Simulated scan of single mutants.
Amino acid sequence: MLAIRLPEEIEKRLGDLAEKTGRTKSFYAREAIMEHLEDLEDYYLAVHRLENPPERVWSLEELEQGIDLES
């Protein structure tokens, strides 16, 4: 269960959309979260990796030597 407070204008827009489409406000809130959650996770993972670089970095040549490109 999740309860969130939205600015009045956003709450109204969400309510209007729900009414026009016959869906619930919860449906649209859930859809919006699911749509953007992966982007947010990717963003924070990228920030973490920039702030905490790996101990070892491989060159493209090293990576290519490590895999069979003919398969």
Rank of each mutant, 00 (worst) to 15 (best):
L17T: 08
H48C: 07
E38I: 06
A3Q: 12
G66W: 09
N52F: 02
L37F: 11
V47W: 07
A3G: 08
R49D: 13
Y44F: 13
G66D: 11
L37Y: 14
L40C: 06
L37K: 13
K20S: 10
W58P: 01
E38V: 04
L40Y: 11
E31T: 05
E35Y: 06
Y44D: 06
D68K: 05
I33M: 10
D39V: 00
D42P: 00
I4Q: 03
V47G: 05
A3S: 15
S71V: 15
A3C: 09
L63G: 02
E9C: 08
R56W: 08
L63H: 05
Y43C: 04
L40I: 13
L60W: 05
Y43V: 04
L63E: 03
E41V: 12
E38Y: 06
L63D: 01
E61L: 08
P53H: 03
E61K: 12
L17Y: 14
E70D: 08
G22F: 00
H36Y: 10
D16N: 14
E9H: 10
D16F: 07
L60Q: 08
L63P: 00
M34R: 15
H48T: 08
A46I: 05
I33L: 15
E9D: 12
Y28M: 03
V47M: 12
F27M: 03
Y43K: 14
M1E: 12
D39N: 10
I67F: 11
E9P: 05
E8A: 12
H36V: 08
A18E: 02
A32P: 00
E31L: 13
R30W: 06
A18G: 01
K20Y: 05
